[in-house]
Nucleic acid binder design. Structure first.
Lengths: 238, 238
DNA sequence: CGCTTTATTGACCCGAATCAAGTAGAGTGG
DNA sequence: CCACTCTACTTGATTCGGGTCAATAAAGCG
């Protein structure tokens, strides 16, 4: 339960009652292997997946077999509140590492919306945050050069993982192969590889295998034109 | 009020009480000229903007002066529920045409969340929908060729405008200059122009000035690899 | 009727996809 | 323990898409 609490607590402090409700919601746990499909495309689920531990991606295959990853999720993310409100999923969610997940029944979420307005707003906000993240990625994809996009991606993940205590000593793990990264950033593997080398050459970050270490945050954010504002880590309205 | 009702009614039928509440929420009307900034970047608004009539874009300027448009909004869209839940805006919203807008006080929205769980879910859902749209655009940007992206964009806007009765006889108006379109799709104006010509050459759509007419929906959707699923026009859960 | 904004075209060149090959490490089985 | 295979990463060569620069129409508009 901790990561979601950590996630929500960044903004408003949860009351004891709210914490208790979250714990109860997330009681139904499961550990799944990497590459497990957590939410299938086209499905109409009756429960939503909350990531407790590990990372997952939202992905979509095009008719011509190309894959695009539209979002990356970390511990504490309520991966498919989408499914709670929409009837069918237009994409699938797949575990990128071994993950611990909690399955939250939609009927329980519904009860929350009927009885816990403040908690409802907090959950609603996580969707707004997700949207802000995707929007920032749109901007990055449309207007940044590949190496800058990689820098932006590293900055974003750094802060998101920090919030749930998954970084230590400026280092964190990105469990993606270069094929995954290419599908996240919308480019070819070959070019991704070269862009990654270009990024390494700036000496702002060390990125070997899945271990990423920030060496110069200041310059890295400039490179990626990264402005943390959209992650809204500050105080909340509620 | 009509467009939002039309928008929300596509999924669940609103009760009379809920309709009445929406009408009251949106009582504070204003007409603004094209290019008016409806929501400023960095602001922390106390009210949210509901588009009654016209179109608007979410945009963001990068440090180097480049602009990216991350979303397009049409009549009936609750343009910045974002601001209701987050503390500051990371981008601005600008009218793309002359618009009629309604200003909804956050305090009133808050009351809705405390007393109208079903309406709350419907509003929440509009945010989820927005996210789905942006995600589809990420996929399009990352993996589709420019002409296909234009086709995708036309398909999406067609269905969204149809929902609020803004299309007639397979035609609708896209009030964007080619500079705007370039910033929406993340490419240069010159190339956008050429891609548009390529799209016209397919004879699936007529696109002259701001008037777009679908000539062959079937082929246009194939071209843009457009699958309407993500717009979730079907029945709702609630 | 000038002036600005928008659309279009050509020339040039760099960036990025594709194709193809080679290397390295991890796991498997004889 | 070594050959075999698979996957991930890297590199080079080639081609083509798409950006930039520059110029010209065309169309509003004051």
């Amino acid at each position: 339960m901790n990561p979601l609490k950590a996630h929500l607590n960044t903004r408003s402090h949860l009351t004891c009652e709210e914490e208790a409700i979250l714990v109860r919601l997330a009681a139904r746990r499961e550990r799944v292997a990497s590459k497990t499909e957590l939410v299938a495309e086209g499905s109409s689920p009756f429960r939503s997946c909350l990531l407790i531990e590990g990372m997952a991606v939202r992905q979509h295959y095009l008719a011509d077999g190309k894959r695009m990853i539209s979002a990356v999720h970390v511990a504490g993310d309520f991966v498919d509140l989408h499914g709670f409100l929409m009837d069918t999923m237009d994409h699938s969610v797949v575990a990128a590492t071994s993950c611990e997940v909690a399955w939250v029944m939609h009927s329980d979420l519904r009860t929350v919306t009927e009885t816990q307005p403040r908690l409802t707003r907090l959950l609603w906000r996580t969707v707004v945050e997700d949207a802000a993240i995707i929007r920032a990625n749109i901007t990055a994809m449309g207007r940044l050069k590949p190496a800058a996009r990689l820098a932006h991606f590293a900055c974003e993940l750094y802060l998101r993982l920090e919030r749930v205590a998954k970084v230590s000593d400026h280092s964190f793990r990105i469990p993606f192969t270069q094929y995954d990264l290419a599908d996240i950033l919308g480019m070819s593997v070959v070019h991704l590889n070269r862009s990654l080398q270009a990024l390494r050459a700036t000496d702002t970050v060390s990125w070997e295998a899945d271990l990423v270490t920030i060496k110069d945050w200041q310059r890295l954010t400039e490179l990626g034109q990264f402005d943390a504002g959209y992650l809204n880590l500050g105080a909340s309205k509620d």
